[in-house]
Design a protein around this nucleic acid. Structure first.
Lengths: 96, 96
DNA sequence: CGTGTAAGGAATTCTGACACG
DNA sequence: CGTGTAAGGAATTCTGACACG
């Protein structure tokens, strides 16, 4: 696991790094766009990757996209990633 | 300023990243080895560089060095860095 | 829909001190 | 000397709700 995937940032640090407000960050979570890890006590912990995602998401919102659209877009990308991975697996089978 | 110099980590994240206890981390600060930034409210904020420093410091302590020795060592290194920088400046003057 | 805000409680962090060795 | 711990208070974060548009 890369350091970029370590969930180590509090929401206030993420506010600072992204320029967003805590309210925005929590709302994007509610819309299932960026789901942070949690401490035992329930405090949100974000990774560097989450920070980058949040910046992207906010850009898209500023461009006029809805959180729903952004979510759908992400879903699509995930599916394509899966397809590619499957292709790779299948090809690997045939090469044996 | 690099992301490594951004003070964004709470002491609990630093505990996780370094494997040290908060007590140790605060003690090294008291001994002037790693001085974190602070929020307005006084909460410590560490950078990635601080994390790396803390790990180094703890290694040296485990090796039997005292915090005083480690501090002196760091002072020496700082002075040498200064010397190098001065050399560079002087050479730059002569090259004109 | 996306964001601001006030409210009350819970989790986190802070400092100074006592302890051991 | 370096670290653990209990104590009390302060800073931070949490959730659910009302508001606007």
């Amino acid at each position: 696991m890369n350091y970029k995937d370590k969930s180590i940032l509090t929401i206030s640090s993420v506010e600072e790094l992204t320029g967003l407000t805590a309210r925005q960050i929590r709302y994007y979570e509610q819309r299932k766009l960026v789901i942070p890890a949690r401490t035992e006590g329930g405090t949100r912990k974000y990774s560097i990757n989450d920070v980058e995602k949040l910046i992207d998401i906010n850009s898209k919102i500023i461009e006029g996209h809805s959180t729903y659209e952004i979510r759908q877009e992400e879903r699509k990308n995930e599916k394509e990633m899966l397809k590619e991975m499957l292709k790779g697996q299948i090809n690997a089978q045939f090469r044996r």
